[in-house]
């Protein structure tokens, strides 16, 4: 009998305490202080560990046979900006990519000029933060070559990508550190799966930073800027989703 009571007590204890613990965890997660001081440890450790162990590692590349039959889109599938719509209608003939910020020689590059540079083609995997993955082929100019040509300042710590698309009026932007920016597989892609980069995938160019999640792969890139800090840009967290949804800036997993 005694044993039965303790068994009942044990189960009752579990069923009474579980909802209280759940509610407590919900409240902890909602507390900004707890999230900032404790739940940010994962991101901090991931960033340090990945930079320590994998700074120069190359993302896996795949064969044509391994590509997704249909590469689904992520983020915005079009940009409503009026200037962008005009460029799209003109086949980006008068569009220029602006390269500025902490560089010795700011540049304005046409799509044709970008295409005359040495291109890199890679078949890589796109990992969305939601959990889906797609494999596609990207062709573009390595970002490091553009940055070197512009004479990037040694004090520059981040590259910011300003985009033509927006979510309810807030422009999309993203940023990466110099390790990712100078990585050989980080390209400004103007070609996808053997053709021009389609509008729904971010024409005329999108960033491919292959060791990163989907939301870091900025689409509809209009301007890139080398900066020393991110606090003064947008909402200050380094990207649209970082500002709007408090997604991790480095991520990487």
């Amino acid at each position: 009998m005694g044993n039965l009571l303790t068994r009942r007590g044990f189960l009752a204890g579990l069923s009474v305490s579980a909802p209280a613990v759940l509610a407590g965890c919900d409240r902890l997660g909602a507390s900004s202080g707890f999230r900032q001081s404790f739940l940010s440890w994962g991101e901090w450790l991931n960033y340090r560990a990945h930079r320590l162990l994998f700074a120069d590692s190359l993302a896996p590349e795949f064969s044509e046979a391994e590509m997704s039959p249909v590469f689904r889109t992520n983020g915005n599938t079009m940009a409503g900006d009026q200037v962008y719509r005009r460029h799209l209608a003109e086949g980006f003939a008068n569009w220029r990519l602006e390269v500025g910020g902490m560089v010795a020689k700011p540049m304005r590059l046409s799509l044709a000029e970008l295409k005359t540079r040495e291109a890199k083609t890679q078949i890589t995997e796109h990992s969305c933060v939601e959990g889906w993955t797609a494999i596609g082929k990207w062709t573009g100019v390595p970002l490091w070559s553009i940055l070197n040509e512009a004479g990037i300042a040694p004090e520059a710590r981040y590259i910011v990508f300003y985009c033509a698309d927006d979510f309810r009026g807030t422009s999309y932007y993203e940023s990466i550190d110099m390790v990712d920016a100078m990585h050989p597989q980080t390209i400004l892609a103007y070609g996808m799966n053997g053709g021009d980069l389609p509008e729904k995938h971010g024409a005329p160019i999108r960033l491919r930073v292959e060791r990163q999640l989907g939301y870091k792969q900025a689409k509809f890139v209009m301007r890139i800027e080398a900066v020393a800090a991110l606090e003064q840009i947008g909402g200050g967290r380094g990207g649209y989703w970082e500002d709007a949804g408090r997604y991790a800036w480095y991520a990487g997993i």
Binding site: P19, L22, C25, D26, G29, A30, R35, F38, L39, S40, W41, G42, E43, L45, N46, V129, E130, W241, G245, R246, Y247, A248, I253
Partner: peptide
């Protein structure tokens, strides 16, 4: 909602929980 953390839909916060406790 009663089996997820947080109970409402919040992918960024769930990832913060998951990846911190993963370490």
């Amino acid at each position: 909602e009663w089996v997820t953390l947080p109970s409402g839909y919040n992918l960024a916060l769930a990832r913060d929980w998951h990846l911190t406790f993963a370490w």
